[in-house]
């Protein structure tokens, strides 16, 4: 049995959660003061995900911009974050780029696209 400690991000209270686990199985969540805390803890220990944001270089911008901000089109596994970040280095995309344009397809094999979050002319 192991115990995972988490800080709940559901509200400013920031409850210190303890999740007791037997292998992959959650035995008990304690320290939460509401249901949201338990739901957060269960997701966080079994399948933690994040939207990952970054910026990549552009070329040919008539507006003189050097970078375009990007994000994963949906959540990616938390553990993939650094891999996705590394795969963005050295990438350069042609302008114009519009919000929602796919900048990198299936980034780092996550099955998720990296999309632009700004219009860059």
């Amino acid at each position: 049995m192991k115990t995972v400690n988490l800080t709940c991000i559901g509200c400013p209270l920031g409850c210190q959660l303890e999740v007791m686990m037997e292998g992959e199985k959650i035995l008990m969540v304690t320290g939460n003061t509401c249901q949201r805390g338990e739901a957060y803890a269960r997701k966080e220990v079994t399948d933690p995900t994040r939207i990952m944001t970054s910026s990549v270089r552009v070329y040919g911008s008539v507006a003189g911009e050097r970078m375009v901000p990007v994000k994963t089109a949906s959540d990616i596994p938390k553990g993939k974050t650094m891999e996705v970040a590394a795969s963005l280095r050295g990438v350069s995309v042609p302008c114009p780029v519009n919000i929602g344009d796919v900048v990198i397809r299936n980034v780092a094999g996550t099955g998720v696209d990296m999309i632009a979050t700004k219009n860059v002319l």
Binding site: T53, S54, P69, V70, K71, I99, T117, K118, N119
Partner: peptide
């Protein structure tokens, strides 16, 4: 460029540039 903007205004999570746009 991080996300977390607009949950109150647009009921969705946007990045800063998207919110500004």
């Amino acid at each position: 460029i991080h996300n977390g903007f607009g949950l109150h205004t647009f009921q969705e999570e946007l990045t800063g540039p998207e919110y500004a746009q």
